[in-house]
Each structure stands twice: as C-alpha cells, then as structure tokens.
Amino acid sequence: MVNIDDFVKRLEIILDYYALNASSFADRIGVQRSSMSHLLSGRNKPSLDFVMKIMEVFPDVDLYWILNGKGSFPKNSEEVSESIKAPTPIAANENLATGDLFSQINFKETEKIQTRTPPEIKNQILITEESEMEKIVIFYKNGTFKAYVP
C-alpha cells in the first residue's frame, strides 16, 4: 500500500527537480488543479490514472520510486531510453526480399510460412476441465513473486 505522506514528499521532489509549482504540474500532466491540491494536502490518495500520467509526461520518474521509494530519481539514462523504445515488430516471413513498400512480392507455392510461438504461449500448460487449480504464482522482473491460493 502506498504511504500517502511519503508519496507527497516524492511528488514534491519531482516538482522541485522540474522547477514547477503544483498548478503548472497539474496542467502538464492533464489533471485538475484541485485534485493536485487535495493530493498534496493529504486529503486524497493518488489514483492509478494520476500516477500513469506522471509516468507518460516525465519518463525519468521511476514507477517503483514514486510509489514505494525504491529505485532512483531521476532514472539512469539507460532505463529512460529503454522505457521509451518502440517495440520491434516480428515479420511473418523473414525470407522475403527487401524492397520498397510498393514492390511486388513473389511467393513460391512450395514455400511454407513459418510461424513463431511467443515464449509466453510456449511455456503454458493446457488445462483440462478435470484439472483443479492449486496455486497462482506471479513472478516479477525484480526477482520477487506472489503466490495466491484459491
């Protein structure tokens, strides 16, 4: 659970870092000034939408740092550049000749299109109706996990 007093302190650090007052910060992230005031006074807790807007506008704010105080502010330059990279699409057939967008592509009838199975699907086990759920385990990138027993 997010400690509201600590969250407000970290939010004030962000305001100082960017030399913004509360109203200009609210305008930059697209929230009402009153909601910013209520948050800074401790009246309201931050919503997920509020935190996500901060993350969108200020990419060097670390999510774990703003929520829990773990991590660093500002992020390392490597972390910032990785967080704003666009995902690279996977081509359906990598054997295609490179050309412009309007060039004609000739396929051989005997050539089969190879499909890739994403790693998320590859590691799943199919569950039949007779199977009973024992436990749900969620693994996080930082090495921690949570286990839920129904």
Rank of each mutant, 00 (worst) to 15 (best):
residue 132 E to L: 12
residue 139 F to V: 11
residue 69 G to E: 01
residue 135 K to F: 04
residue 113 I to L: 10
residue 44 N to E: 09
residue 125 I to C: 02
residue 128 T to E: 13
residue 101 L to G: 15
residue 146 K to S: 10
residue 147 A to S: 15
residue 62 D to E: 14
residue 78 E to Y: 12
residue 97 A to I: 10
residue 38 H to M: 05
residue 119 P to V: 14
residue 72 S to L: 03
residue 9 K to G: 00
residue 8 V to C: 04
residue 121 I to V: 15
residue 115 T to A: 10
residue 37 S to M: 03
residue 117 T to L: 14
residue 35 S to Q: 08
residue 47 S to F: 10
residue 47 S to I: 11
residue 57 V to N: 05
residue 22 A to D: 03
residue 50 F to Y: 13
residue 73 F to C: 07
residue 14 I to R: 00
residue 43 R to W: 06
residue 34 S to W: 06
residue 68 N to D: 07
residue 74 P to M: 08
residue 52 M to C: 09
residue 111 E to H: 11
residue 53 K to Q: 07
residue 33 R to L: 00
residue 138 I to W: 07
residue 61 V to S: 02
residue 142 N to R: 07
residue 73 F to I: 11
residue 140 Y to T: 05
residue 40 L to Y: 00
residue 142 N to E: 14
residue 92 A to G: 09
residue 49 D to E: 10
residue 36 M to R: 05
residue 73 F to E: 05
residue 100 D to R: 14
residue 56 E to W: 06
residue 142 N to D: 15
residue 108 K to I: 09
residue 79 E to K: 12
residue 20 L to G: 04
residue 140 Y to M: 10
residue 127 I to S: 07
residue 23 S to D: 09
residue 48 L to N: 15
residue 75 K to E: 03
residue 91 A to H: 08
residue 24 S to L: 09
residue 26 A to H: 02
residue 1 M to S: 09
residue 78 E to V: 15
residue 148 Y to C: 06
residue 144 T to Y: 05
residue 65 W to S: 02
residue 149 V to E: 08
residue 134 E to C: 03
residue 31 V to W: 00
residue 86 A to W: 02
residue 30 G to H: 10
residue 3 N to G: 01
residue 58 F to K: 02
residue 30 G to D: 09
residue 28 R to H: 09
residue 83 S to C: 00
residue 74 P to K: 07
residue 128 T to Y: 04
residue 128 T to D: 14
residue 17 Y to L: 06
residue 86 A to V: 12
residue 3 N to H: 08
residue 63 L to E: 06
residue 130 E to Q: 09
residue 50 F to V: 01
residue 43 R to H: 11
residue 131 S to W: 11
residue 95 N to R: 14
residue 87 P to Y: 09
residue 41 S to M: 05
